[in-house]
């Protein structure tokens, strides 16, 4: 195939466009992935961490409610326990429906079992029973069950926190990877432009200047159109056309003189 100037310049720009298009597509894809990851991070780990915090808060309120019952404050104590239980169950359901980590289900099952044991300890009447004012029962039985449940909830929170930390580190790396194609393609495009500029000067501007100089020489009386155009493209064609034209002018001028 004959490589005309038109084809050469077109092909060069196509290469540049292809490079920028691929870089753009990759960057967009990476950023979309990044955006989805951030969304997922909030949806997945953050949701479970918040649920764990709510469960711990509920457990602590329940502990306070139990202490009130020990003091004989039945109405206030039961009210706190009821609302805290409702908060715990709601938070627990959120965590249960948001299983995103490996073995997370095991932690949920442990929390469920532990909370059931803890709840069975304060569901039964405390006021006006032998448990009222019984610090030993509180210390050796119910408080230990409270601590055990809180410990498992904390474990669930740690699991999600460490996973979140790892994902954030990975996201940081990913964001760098998303930016890199852009940076590389900008530098590559600059280098590409410089090389293109060199080729255009070498294969387009220089031959044209040589041709213009040859025509000037013709005007000054040098009838040998000499230029060093080696390429086989439009410039060569132009050189031949000008050469033919000038030859014809010379011939006509000779005829007129005769």
């Amino acid at each position: 195939m004959k490589k005309t100037l038109k084809l050469k310049i077109f092909a060069s720009f196509m290469l540049l466009i292809a490079m920028l298009a691929v870089a753009g597509t990759i960057s967009i894809a990476e950023f979309r992935w990044l955006s989805n990851s951030v969304h997922g991070l909030i949806q997945d780990n953050y949701k479970s961490i918040e649920a764990s915090k709510s469960m711990i808060e509920a457990l602590e309120r329940e502990d306070s409610g139990i202490l009130l019952l020990l003091l004989g404050e039945w109405e206030e104590g039961r009210e706190i326990l009821k609302s805290a239980d409702s908060l715990f169950i709601s938070a627990f359901m959120t965590a249960k429906n948001n299983l995103t980590e490996q073995n997370e289900n095991e932690y949920i099952e442990k929390i469920d079992a532990s909370y059931k044991i803890f709840k069975s300890g304060w569901e039964l009447p405390i006021v006006d029973t032998d448990k009222q004012g019984n610090i030993s029962w509180y210390k050796d039985d119910i408080h230990k069950k409270f601590e055990a449940t809180k410990f498992v909830v904390n474990e669930l929170m740690s699991l999600n926190q460490s996973s979140m930390y790892n994902e954030v580190s990975e996201l940081k790396e990913k964001s760098k990877r998303a930016i890199m194609p852009g940076i590389v393609s900008i530098i590559a495009a600059l280098v590409f432009s410089l090389i293109l500029n060199f080729f255009i000067t070498r294969y387009f501007i220089n031959p044209l200047s040589e041709l213009a100089e040859a025509v000037d020489n013709f005007r000054d009386g040098d009838y040998n159109l000499q230029s060093n155009i080696t390429s086989n493209d439009e410039i060569k064609k132009l050189e031949q056309s000008i050469s033919d034209l000038l030859q014809r002018i010379v011939n006509n001028s000779n005829k007129i003189k005769q």
Binding site: K8, A11, S12, L15, A188, V191, L196
Partner: peptide
């Protein structure tokens, strides 16, 4: 891709 493009580019001219 970058390597390929820069490799092919001079062959055009």
């Amino acid at each position: 891709l970058i390597c390929g493009i820069f490799g092919i580019f001079p062959l055009i001219f």
